[in-house]
Structure formats: structure tokens, C-alpha cells
Amino acid sequence: MRVGLICPYSFDAYGGVQLHVRDLAEELIRRGHDVSVMAPAEDSTPVPDYVVPSGGSVAIPYNGSVARLTFGPVVGGRVRRWVGDGRFDLLHLHEPFIPSLSMLALWVADGPVVGTFHTSMERSRALRAISPVVGPMLEKVSGRIAVSSEARRTLVQHLGGDAVVVPNGVYADHFADAEPDPRWSATPGRPTVAFLGRLDEPRKGLPVLAAAIPEVLTLVPGARFLVAGRGDASEERALLARHGDAVTFLGGISDEEKRRLFRSVDVYVAPQTGGESFGIVLVEAMAAGALVVASDIPAFQAVLEQGAHGRLFRRGDPRSLARTLVEVLTHPQDAAPLRSSASTAVRRYDWSVVTTQILHVYDMVMQTARTPVREDPRSRTMYGRIRAAAERPWV
């Protein structure tokens, strides 16, 4: 099968969706499929051979984060050529309602289309405003996938329709087999706790962790906190400087370093305050054998199955986080059953399982398709296409 994958977010700076698209493409290729990925990326950005860069992107605040997107007539022409030249049996668009490559591809293509929805949000004026336009366009998506129940809820609530839930994937063995790093490993009397996330995105929860650390160090003075991630954290650094080497800022780390970090530490802490649709980083830490302590946002409750595979604390509450960390650091024997159940649970998220589920959706869509993907003749006048969609009745 020849599959065209579209990622709306730039490969210049990897995030969860980019990693999902990359790993899915490589797993499909490993299974013998012919795959081409189109994604925003500068010409100078190193990308895999199967990725076709669409050019630079613009940083836009979105859902408590910053999304790097691309749009416009020049990019639209590139998408049109990629679709026309690709002779794809099926297009798989990620976040097709985001104004970037996926939406452009949805406009210009006709034929078998699968869409994956990653976003989770409580309310969105922007989504409600564009739903009369985007809703009819999404009717071209024959198979819909949501990466979690939260992502499915967002789709149903804001755009209508429904989706089958297929989670994000992880190569579990890559984390389970990683070599621990002595710099990050615990020693007698010195347990280690790791945080990984964008330091300058408040929703990732670093301020919550920073406020909890002093209380933890008062009760567990030997604890070490390893803070990894890109972005400015001047306020947190200043707050925690008095604790010396008990708190270490690692900066950005590579994929290999991430695996070794999770394999080395006793606890991985996820203090996110919201905006998460899944929680792939929790699954990665679980696969590596770290005990996960996470905020009780719905996405994390689902991954940890209400605390069956890790510990939960009240979101946004530093004292609740501190108490939970003190409990797990002072009673390490209680973590063994949680780690054991977590190592079993993560197997359902392995790419060997997830890709098979995605291929089932592909098969369902292909069974109802009459022709391969081709250019939609209505797309030649893009603004006319938008106007027609807006005028079309939609419920």
C-alpha cells in the first residue's frame, strides 16, 4: 500500500505529534508499505529520506503551547503537487482541522482519507467559530482516529462526528533495554526524580514542581531532582538555586538520553496542569521502569488507570505533589507492584500493537473506496472551496 502521511507541525522542533508521525511511518515501512511524509521544515533541517519538507513555518500560540504551522498559496501548491505526484492509495492526515498542511491536503485531495485527532481541550472559541467551515470538509475523512478518549471528546464536542480510539505508540523495548546513566542513577540515601518538558510552557507544570521541591527536600534531604527540557526557566532556577546540586537543570536532551534518563531514575514526575490528550511521556517512563507520579488530569488518569500503574496527585497543587513524592521516596518497597503492573500495561501501547490497529482502520476505509487518492477538481479555486463549505448545511 502507498500511504501519504501529513504532519501539520514543523519537524524543525519535535513534539508528540511529529514523533508519532515519524514512528508510524517507520513502522509502516518496516512492514513493507511505501510511505511518504509531508511536513513543515526548513530546507536546512535534517529529515528522514521519506519526509518531503514543505518549507518554513510560523510559531502560533495554541492550546497553552506554541505550534509551528505553515499555510498560504505557495505551500498549497506544494501540497497539490505532492498529492498529484504521489499516486497514494490512502492519505493519513494528522490534525486535519488545524490550519496547516493537513487542512490544505484535505482541500485538494479526493479519495480514501484517514484523519487522526490528537488535541484535547475543554473550550475553544476558535474551534467553534470555524466548525461551520471545517465540519463539511471533515466529511471527506472516511476513517477517524482519536489518540485518547479526551481527544475523541474534543472532536465530538467541537466538530461533531465520532472516532475510534487508537492510542499513541511507543517502542517499549527501546526504553526497557536502555542503559542506565551513572550520573542520573540513585545511590543509597539519594533517590532521583526526573521531570521532562518545555520549561517555559506553564501547562507542563514546572512551577508546580518547583514549589513542591523545598518541602520534599526538607523531609527527604538526600533526594535529587533532574529537570530536562528546552526553554527559559529563570524564575524556577532562582527559586531552587539555594538547594545546590539537589536540583540539576539538564537542558534539552536527545531521544537516547531520554531513554537512559528514564531507565536511571526512581521516579518520573508529570505535573502538567491541562491541555494533554494522552501522555506518551508517562508510557515511556513506565516502559523504562520508573515509577510515575502524575497530576490527576483526565488523560493521565486514563494512562495510569486511576492509579493502578502509578501515583496521582491533585493538579496544580504543590503540597499534594510534595506529599506524594515524600511517600514514594520514603517507602520504595510500595513502588514494586506499581512498576510491575505498569511494565505489563505499556505493551498495549507498543508500536507493534498500535500499527496493527491503525492498519485495521486503513483496511476499513479501503474496502469502501472506489479509486485511489486524486486531486479534487473543486480545489482549483481554494477560496471558492472555502465559500462552498461555509454555505453547505451542517449539523
Rank of each mutant, 00 (worst) to 15 (best):
A241L: 12
M121H: 03
R87H: 14
S124L: 07
V164H: 15
V326N: 12
P214H: 09
N168F: 11
I386R: 04
V292F: 02
Q18E: 15
G111A: 08
D34Y: 14
D85I: 03
E235R: 11
S295A: 02
G244K: 02
V353H: 10
S320W: 04
A369W: 14
E150T: 05
A290Y: 10
A176E: 02
I60M: 09
S379N: 01
P73T: 00
D245H: 11
E95K: 04
E305P: 03
D177K: 15
D23Y: 07
V147T: 07
A109E: 00
R263V: 00
F300G: 01
F313C: 03
M137K: 00
V220T: 00
R319S: 12
A342Q: 11
A233I: 07
R31P: 10
M137G: 05
V326S: 09
W394H: 13
D89W: 13
L159F: 11
T116M: 00
V134F: 00
A238E: 13
P132F: 15
D89F: 12
P61C: 11
M382Y: 13
G15V: 00
Q157V: 02
P188A: 01
Q333G: 04
D34P: 02
H158V: 02
P393E: 14
A342L: 08
V247A: 11
V267I: 05
F225D: 00
